[in-house]
Nucleic acid binder design. Structure first.
Lengths: 164, 164
DNA sequence: CGGAAATGCTTTGACGTCTAAGTATTTATT
DNA sequence: AATAAATACTTAGACGTCAAAGCATTTCCG
């Protein structure tokens, strides 16, 4: 199944041997890339029986948390940091499965609201439970490691202008 | 540009309010997902002028580090943890740009080798330099944070069976 | 030795994401 | 009030990834 050595540590050694720059940055970037890969695999596997993936679940959760159970598509994209076209696509699929419906904004004709349905709320709760059982894919990371990842990445998110 | 609050911290609050499980796991998973998003954006932007993306660069780097400048496609996939079909696709594009060529394996008729060309080596070096300049997208994370991310994610990678 | 199983790669199809362009509506400007 | 600019979403097209099926070659075993 796996390799006998750490492929990222191996890459760092090769990197140094070629005198290529920013070895520590490379390992951090590669680690995060691989972590994401592992997480997506585990999370999508857990959500597949529910007809969801992580993107669709994130939209449902956001709507579930909203006061009215609805949000403008643009606001969803801003929160989840995804492109408007991706939001359109995701909401299309959620709507096809009757987990949300599109409704017009009461005062702004340009805006479309995504409104979560009753079935959508049930599905969101089931998905949250399923994700809880697999610890959102981070099983194997201790509590301390999780906090450190959060803290370290917060630096990156602020530098990237996510908030603050 | 960004929001005024930390969207992940906000999600944690909402999560708790709904009594949804595994809040700390959720924040870790969401942080990693967002970090990956930031990295890919920065890295692909830095590599685009060179006609590369991160996947293609990773293949070139692997070949550059190899003893003979060539590797079986299957071995590339195992190292980079990507699907065989993705390796085929990536090597197709590298070959179209004359950065690698496919050659038959000397003894095993099933196996195809990807061999890096002279131009491929030059391009890899240029890309490594470009990535060094942007610190592989992790600019904003301090040295300590990078080490902590590496260490924390190593736990995850071992748990996922990557190596060891 | 010879057929079954395993291995290595490619092809096809589905899905997700992004960019760029297009349409509709609202806001700003003069 | 009329036009220009900005905003919100959708559509079309390109690319990347994966799963599943297909094809060729090699290895395993009775």
């Amino acid at each position: 199944m796996g390799l006998e050595f750490d492929p990222i540590a191996e890459a760092a050694i090769n990197w140094r041997a070629e005198n290529w720059p920013a070895v520590d940055a490379m390992t951090a970037a590669t680690s995060i890339t691989r972590a994401h890969q592992i997480l997506v695999g585990r999370i999508d596997a857990a959500l597949a029986p529910l007809g969801l993936n992580f993107s669709r679940f994130e939209v449902l959760a956001l709507l579930e948390f909203s006061r009215e159970g609805s949000l403008p598509l643009g606001k969803i994209g801003a929160r989840l940091q995804v492109h408007p076209a991706s939001v359109t696509n995701t909401v299309d699929r959620l709507e096809r499965d009757r987990l949300v419906t599109r409704t017009p904004h009461p005062t702004d004709g340009r805006t479309t609201l995504a409104l979560i349905t009753g079935e959508g709320r049930q599905r969101a709760a089931a998905a949250a439970s399923a994700l809880g059982e697999i610890e959102f894919g981070v099983a194997g990371m201790g509590a301390r490691a999780r906090r450190r990842v959060d803290d370290a990445i917060r630096e990156l998110r602020i530098a990237a202008g996510d908030f603050g």
